[in-house]
Computed example of a mutant assay.
Amino acid sequence: MKMTLVSLTVVFVLASFATLGYASDPSPLQDFCVAVKDADAAVFVNGKICKNPELVVAEDFIYRGLNKPGNTSNPIGSRVTPVNVNQLPGLNTLGISAVRIDYAPNGLNPPHTHPRATEILVVLEGTLYVGFVTSNPANPAIKNKLFAKYLYPGDVFVFPEGLIHFQFNVGKTNAVAFAGLSSQNPGVITVANAVFGSDPPINPAVLTKAFQVEKNVIDYLQAQFWWNID
């Protein structure tokens, strides 16, 4: 019995280390794996196919343009400029990417999640109100907890992987932030877009029961133009 308990403990510890080892994108097994464009790939894989190393050039590792403000003339007043493996092929297998986020006054980067990445945000200009919400607690009597702060230039805030988070420009001037993400292709699920703007739409009966509102409210929300953040 004692040996069995020890064995189970060893298995649990090893499994825990394995889980930590795969908390972000898998580690690369070579110096680099510059991505081939999807249209040029002969097969589909979990990630991108590698370019022949003999054909790799310095241009595969550079992206220019994050010095340019994004156009915030849209309904939410923000613009995300991503630099992931789709814009910078040299990021393939490296487990990292970046974004620039521009906010007009009262601009919002609406509640969303990155299913494959933790995000670390640094404010360059302006004042942001940011936060994230925890996943459902084990005790159903306890509500999801909000962690939120006001950020100023030079402040850094982290959003854990997969959790719903947001940024809101509470200042009277434009705001700018940069963020790093722990995946070459972190993905984005914008909550309002996914719930009310899916194609085809989710059956209103599902949403009226989920949100405990009348059907006319759901009809109104589903009729809106939902703006993608990147």
Score class of each variant (00 low, 15 high):
residue 1 M to K: 01
residue 2 K to H: 03
residue 3 M to K: 12
residue 3 M to I: 03
residue 4 T to Q: 02
residue 11 V to D: 01
residue 12 F to E: 01
residue 12 F to P: 00
residue 14 L to D: 00
residue 14 L to F: 13
residue 15 A to T: 09
residue 17 F to P: 13
residue 21 G to S: 13
residue 21 G to L: 05
residue 22 Y to R: 14
residue 22 Y to M: 11
residue 24 S to V: 06
residue 26 P to D: 04
residue 29 L to Q: 13
residue 29 L to P: 00
residue 32 F to Q: 03
residue 32 F to S: 14
residue 32 F to E: 02
residue 33 C to Q: 01
residue 33 C to W: 02
residue 33 C to M: 03
residue 34 V to H: 08
residue 34 V to F: 05
residue 40 D to G: 05
residue 44 F to V: 15
residue 44 F to L: 09
residue 47 G to E: 07
residue 48 K to S: 11
residue 50 C to A: 09
residue 53 P to L: 04
residue 54 E to Q: 13
residue 55 L to Y: 10
residue 57 V to C: 08
residue 57 V to R: 11
residue 59 E to R: 12
residue 59 E to P: 06
residue 60 D to T: 01
residue 63 Y to W: 10
residue 63 Y to V: 05
residue 65 G to Q: 04
residue 67 N to I: 00
residue 68 K to Q: 13
residue 70 G to S: 06
residue 72 T to E: 01
residue 73 S to N: 14
residue 73 S to K: 15
residue 81 T to F: 03
residue 83 V to Q: 03
residue 84 N to D: 14
residue 85 V to I: 14
residue 86 N to P: 00
residue 88 L to Q: 04
residue 89 P to A: 07
residue 89 P to Y: 06
residue 90 G to D: 07
residue 93 T to W: 06
residue 95 G to E: 02
residue 96 I to P: 04
residue 98 A to I: 05
residue 99 V to T: 15
residue 99 V to H: 00
residue 99 V to W: 00
residue 100 R to H: 08
residue 103 Y to W: 11
residue 104 A to M: 09
residue 105 P to C: 08
residue 106 N to S: 15
residue 106 N to Q: 15
residue 106 N to F: 08
residue 107 G to K: 05
residue 108 L to K: 10
residue 109 N to I: 00
residue 114 H to Q: 05
residue 115 P to C: 08
residue 116 R to F: 10
residue 116 R to P: 11
residue 117 A to K: 01
residue 118 T to E: 09
residue 122 V to R: 07
residue 124 L to Q: 13
residue 126 G to I: 00
residue 128 L to P: 14
residue 128 L to T: 12
residue 128 L to S: 11
residue 128 L to H: 11
residue 130 V to A: 15
residue 130 V to Q: 06
residue 134 T to M: 05
residue 138 A to C: 02
residue 138 A to F: 09
residue 145 K to N: 04
residue 146 L to K: 08
residue 150 Y to A: 08
residue 151 L to C: 12
residue 152 Y to F: 14
residue 153 P to N: 04
residue 153 P to G: 03
residue 155 D to Y: 10
residue 156 V to K: 06
residue 156 V to D: 04
residue 157 F to T: 04
residue 164 I to T: 14
residue 168 F to P: 13
residue 169 N to A: 10
residue 174 N to F: 09
residue 174 N to Y: 12
residue 175 A to C: 07
residue 176 V to Q: 02
residue 176 V to F: 01
residue 181 L to I: 00
residue 182 S to V: 00
residue 182 S to P: 05
residue 183 S to Y: 02
residue 184 Q to G: 13
residue 184 Q to A: 15
residue 192 A to N: 13
residue 195 V to W: 01
residue 195 V to P: 10
residue 196 F to M: 04
residue 196 F to E: 02
residue 198 S to C: 05
residue 200 P to E: 03
residue 204 P to D: 00
residue 204 P to V: 03
residue 204 P to M: 01
residue 210 A to P: 06
residue 211 F to P: 01
residue 212 Q to S: 14
residue 214 E to L: 04
residue 214 E to M: 02
residue 216 N to T: 12
residue 218 I to K: 03
residue 221 L to M: 12
residue 227 W to A: 00
residue 228 N to V: 06
residue 228 N to D: 13
residue 230 D to M: 01
